[in-house]
Design a protein around this nucleic acid. Structure first.
Length: 192
DNA sequence: CCCAGGATTGACT
DNA sequence: GTCAATCCTGGGA
């Protein structure tokens, strides 16, 4: 079969994976596995945000809210959106981060279902707010390391067919191709 | 101090 | 398809 591969070479080892541009990391995170307290699954959708990006929280420099974005590569950045949902990001180069937009559930299905009010499997983790709800990620996790419990991170090790498109829900820099998704996944938050 | 504006979701027409 | 919910940051007065 004619394949299918990540455009960037898989820099698979721990922090090295994140010591790069958010764009490169966002692409390579497709197919990686994220667990929180043993609950989670495969990352199937991401978006990249960088410091010179008007859509990024870090665009105007460091503030109290976005301080984690300027931490070590592999730091977790969690923020509240629209007064009601949490969004999960992984920090890359200083001031840059990858928003985790969707995962495919593979572990702890019952706990996710419980937290999400018994919704259909498709509605458990397809969206940045939904996946935080399903995994129990909150403000308390802001600034933590992705490489320490309760987080467990396993890099992608396979060739993946990665879709690229415009980011969702922003009003600035809307045309940048900084959204990435696993081709053919049933667990994308929206079509590409 | 005040308050506009969200990297969303779910309910409803 | 439209739209309200709900918190709280950060910029400006």
């Amino acid at each position: 079969m004619p394949h299918d591969q990540s455009a960037t070479s898989p820099a698979t080892e721990g922090p090295d994976l994140f010591s790069r541009s958010a764009e490169a990391v966002a692409r390579d995170l497709i197919g990686a596995t994220l667990l929180y307290d043993g609950v989670g699954g495969m990352i199937v959708e991401t978006e990249a945000y960088h410091p010179s990006d008007p859509a990024s929280h870090s665009f105007k420099g460091q503030t109290l809210r976005n301080a984690a974005m300027f931490g070590q590569p592999g730091t977790v950045y969690v923020y509240r959106i629209y007064g009601m949902h949490w969004c999960l990001n992984f920090v890359c180069e200083p001031g840059s981060a990858v928003l985790i937009r969707a995962i495919e559930p593979t572990a702890g299905f019952d706990r996710m279902s419980e937290r999400r009010g018994g919704l259909a499997p498709r509605l458990l983790t397809t969206g940045p707010g939904r996946l935080c709800s399903a995994l129990g990620i909150t403000r308390d996790d802001d600034g933590r390391s992705l490489f320490e419990l309760p987080f467990t991170f396993s890099p992608n090790v396979r060739a993946r067919d990665v879709l690229v498109g415009q980011r969702i829900g922003i009003t600035k820099a809307v045309d940048e191709p900084l959204r990435f998704g696993l081709a053919g996944s049933r667990f994308l938050s929206r079509k590409f």
